[in-house]
Design a protein around this nucleic acid. Structure first.
Lengths: 196, 196
DNA sequence: ACTCGATCGGCACGCTGCGTGCCGATGCTG
DNA sequence: CAGCATCGGCACGCAGCGTGCCGATCGAGT
């Protein structure tokens, strides 16, 4: 009579990994509303301590879960055509932001962040600023190659580009479709493009 | 022995008014974290039914409270200089968005909206789209007077302008200061200004 | 191989807020 | 001044939070 559990219990670092995955699965299935420490624990068959030992709060867990799936695809291609590269990346990011599991987890973090300015700073630092920086890098290269005017203040431009996408996907009810991206890029290129 | 209450009880419409004010006061004092139906009821010396009879949820109450203080100052001036008019309005809105009671209430609504797509639609319709429309009206006039190029797609432009402000004040940790507004307007005018 | 300590799952607690139901009082309307 | 909608107060069951304690389980060091 083997009442060995199918999988042996408790593993330290491996548990951490598993909990992050369970969080993402939960987010994909039930969305933000169903995300709670209790729900993650229940789903993973885990005591709440096992979660609290690793993360001080639900927000911290969500941030780590987000890192797991958001780190890739951050970098822009560089085909030499800055407009095309931005377009491709914006459409890709827009899709990711509106699909599970990234969409629900992002929404959850943003909701929590509204009540917690520390979390807001962390969110900005670990995600938003990183995305802006990656955009800034790409358009700075374009400025060097003469695709963009030398006078352009690219730091603000990167913020405007990314901010508009976040605004549309998280606060507005409109999708990030080709029209939206093209409209945004029309304005950006009209402002700072050299026509090369 | 007059145990008359200082103020006579219960008044129907006047209670509604009072509850909205209490909500704003609470938001200004304790921020989003302290906003709950119970807290508003406690503060107003009111049973929860009195609130639930008027609003189906905390979000609905918050939206109405927001209307009370956000309706004014929505319209742009029209001095004939579109850049100056936008600049003034953006700085005013930016200040309002980051101060009590509007800031905390706005944050609270946005947090709730992340878990409720219906609320997100209502938020967008009653506030975000209204602000965008008002911006669109102003820049459309500027296009007619020749301050902006005829080819500009102003609908997207209005979204980019407003979206950037919301992004900065609600998701970023940066303030909406003169530099930010000037950077945004630099890009907008570089794209669509005629130099008139 | 065996011991010992860290980690584990499970259960319980008190606290807060939600949304609803019921009560007796209060005050406006007719 | 009578009748009734509205009111404040209290209670309920439910859920999640963050913490404390228990005995089981695993794995590191000998």
């Amino acid at each position: 009579m083997t009442d060995m559990p199918a999988t042996p219990r408790r593993r330290g670092a491996a548990r951490t990994e598993e909990l992050l995955q369970v969080t993402l699965d939960l987010a994909a299935e039930v969305g933000y509303a169903g995300l709670s420490i209790e729900a993650v624990g229940r789903r993973a068959g885990v005591g709440k301590h096992t979660i609290y030992r690793r993360w001080p709060s639900l927000s911290a867990l969500l941030l780590d879960a987000l890192s797991r799936v958001w780190t890739s695809d951050l970098d822009y291609r560089d085909t030499g055509d800055v407009r095309a590269d931005l377009r491709e990346q914006f459409l890709r990011s827009g899709l990711a932001l509106s699909s599970p599991p990234i969409g629900p987890v992002y929404r959850a973090v943003i909701a929590e962040a509204q009540a917690d300015s520390m979390l807001r700073a962390t969110l900005h630092e670990r995600f938003l600023a990183t995305v802006e920086q990656s955009t800034l890098d790409r358009i700075t290269r374009a400025q060097r190659t003469g695709e963009l005017t030398a006078e352009a203040n690219l730091e603000f431009a990167a913020e405007v580009l990314c901010g508009t996408l976040y605004y549309r996907s998280l606060l507005s009810t409109r999708p990030i479709d080709e029209d939206a991206v093209d409209g945004l890029l029309d304005m950006f290129m009209a402002a700072y493009g050299t026509g090369n």
